[in-house]
Simulated assay, not measured.
Amino acid sequence: MQLQILLLLPMTFFLSPGAHTGEIIGGQEAKPHSRPYMAYLKKKTCTGEEMCGGFLVREDFVLTAAHCGDGNITVLLGAHNVLRKEKTQQRVSVLQKIPHPRYNKMSIENDLMLLQLAEPAELDDAVYTIPLPQAGRTVDPGSVCSVAGWGKTNHDAKLTTNILQEVELEVMSDETCQKDTKLRYYYKPSKMMCVGNPNEDKATFSGDSGGPLVCDGTAQGIVSFGKKDGSPPRVFTRVSAYVPWIKKTMGSQQPRVPR
């Protein structure tokens, strides 16, 4: 079987032959700093520089996708245009990367990772945390949620965007992904969410990996993977399935005190 799955991460990361990574298609520019939890992850690897998204869940922790874990990561908070030195920006190095212990890069299961920051973020109007959902709480199919990122903005673009983009996406039934011939071998309903109406040209794509799916003000999903052609639906890690692990892991690390 030829694999047609694409990870929504840096453009050079491939999970398996034919796989691909995440961007915003069919969206628009976000209102500057309207999503203060958003994190831009700049990664230096042996093949060059790559990027991912993430989101601030505690002053000293960013949650992202485990497949974003390669290389030396620097976190940029409070950014709208990542190519400008905005007064709102906070650049923080990563003290440690904590991928989920059962992350499997071949099956793309448990695709989440905590980044403990070397210094806690200074919370303000442009930099703030986003709540986690209640453990085990699911989002009803048909719900309209939103996602944002600095990934590519169309199927043919060769470069990611420097300005934060956002798009509203419909949460689909598990059956939608289970019946999709290119997704069904990977989709696990208890751990993943099926997002994006197949009849709409709106989706995440290359560069958006690790960003949050926001439903009613909470981070319900993490941009994970999808089909190589960028068409919806896409697959997100289901955050509510991992809340106990996230809280336990953060709780085991002492909050860092600003210097």
Rank of each mutant, 00 (worst) to 15 (best):
S240F: 03
G221H: 06
G136S: 05
S34R: 04
Q253L: 14
F225E: 06
Q4K: 13
L112N: 02
A121G: 07
L169N: 03
R259E: 11
D111A: 03
S16E: 12
Q116N: 10
L41Y: 05
E170C: 01
V57R: 11
S224D: 07
V223C: 11
E109L: 11
A118V: 02
A135M: 06
T153D: 03
E170N: 02
F55M: 10
Q253E: 05
C177G: 04
G22A: 14
R58V: 00
M193W: 10
L9Q: 12
P233R: 08
R234A: 14
V57Y: 08
Q2Y: 06
S34D: 13
A203I: 02
D180L: 01
T21M: 09
T129K: 14
P32E: 09
A19M: 10
V167L: 05
F225I: 03
N199Y: 10
T181Y: 01
T160M: 01
T218W: 01
V94E: 12
L95T: 03
H100C: 02
G78M: 05
A118H: 11
L159D: 15
R35M: 10
P189G: 06
N104F: 03
P99C: 08
D216Q: 14
G196Y: 05
V92F: 04
I108N: 10
A121T: 09
Q178G: 11
G207W: 03
Q254C: 03
P17I: 09
G226R: 10
A30D: 04
V147Y: 00
M106G: 03
N162A: 15
G26R: 07
N81A: 13
K228C: 03
S34G: 10
D180H: 07
E168W: 00
F236D: 02
K191T: 12
K87V: 06
D125P: 00
R35G: 00
D111H: 07
S173G: 04
K227A: 06
E166G: 09
M172G: 00
P198G: 14
G142R: 05
Y103I: 08
G78Y: 02
N72V: 08
A219I: 00
C215D: 04
L9C: 12
M1P: 14
P131N: 15
N199P: 00
V243A: 08
K43F: 07
E59S: 14
H20N: 11
Q220I: 01
Q220R: 13
L117N: 04
T12H: 14
L9R: 11
Y242E: 08
D125N: 13
G71K: 11
S224H: 10
F205S: 15
T153R: 09
R256Y: 02
E170Y: 00
Q4Y: 06
C145S: 13
A203C: 12
Y186E: 10
G151I: 04
A148Q: 08
Y128Q: 14
E200W: 02
C177F: 05
T249K: 13
L8E: 11
L164Q: 04
I24F: 01
A157Y: 02
L132H: 09
Y103S: 05
D180E: 05
P32R: 07
D229F: 02
